[in-house]
Design a protein around this nucleic acid. Structure first.
Length: 189
DNA sequence: CGGCAGATACGCT
DNA sequence: GCGTATCTGCCGT
């Protein structure tokens, strides 16, 4: 059921395809499941991407095979997770900006220090905190436990909003942010 | 609820 | 040194 070949495509193609897919995280004997509702594409040809200036120790994962996790640390305190896509040797990935909890929400609330409702996972660093993902997960293959990506059928085009990305200062007009229309967990409209 | 400042450490110039 | 693919608390409507 779960063939992740679609991750071989470009970031721009893969990003909307990830909407609706599931992240299944095994943590302390529990299953935490989140439905991906907001993503952003980043590519080496794009000035906003960490891979834009070529391969470095930090970004090498982005240039590796599709299906691995690129986790980075920023603002001195936050982690964000991406799913690497595109052919090996090409630096591209899709940032997971928001998920909707489907299972194990109580554990996610706990991981988020008691914050509940949409505050559990309506932002990229919140997603990592809810699922207990840090840089130790850099390079993890999302085809494997204890963190799996499970593909779902593609959403209707009318369910997907495409617009410009958030929180960047370069390539601000590139419309590579995708989210599910009317989903309450989307970080910002 | 919207805007703003502060937190805080790492990669890169 | 400086900027950062962010979040939170605090202030004002």
């Amino acid at each position: 059921m779960d063939n992740l070949d679609f991750l071989q495509g470009s970031a721009e193609e893969v990003a909307p395809r990830l909407l609706g897919c599931l992240l299944v995280r095994e943590l302390d004997g529990q299953r935490l499941i989140g439905r991906i509702v907001e993503v952003e594409a980043y590519d080496q040809t794009d000035a906003a991407s960490h891979s834009y200036k070529g391969q470095t120790a930090r970004t090498q994962i982005m240039f590796g095979p599709a299906g691995h996790l690129y986790v980075y640390f920023t603002y001195g305190m936050h982690y964000c997770m991406n799913i690497v896509c595109g052919p090996e040797g090409h630096g591209a990935a899709v940032l997971i900006r928001a998920i909707e909890p489907l299972e194990g929400e109580i554990a996610m609330v706990h991981n988020r220090g008691g914050r509940s409702g949409v505050e559990v996972s309506n932002g990229p660093a919140k997603v990592c905190q809810a699922l207990a993902i840090d840089t130790n997960w850099n390079g993890h293959n999302v085809g494997n436990e204890p963190l799996c990506l499970v593909q779902q059928s593609a959403l209707e085009m009318t369910e997907i909003i495409q617009t410009t990305r958030i929180g960047i200062s370069r390539a601000v007009d590139v419309p590579w942010r995708f989210y599910i229309r009317n989903n309450p967990y989307v970080s910002k409209r």
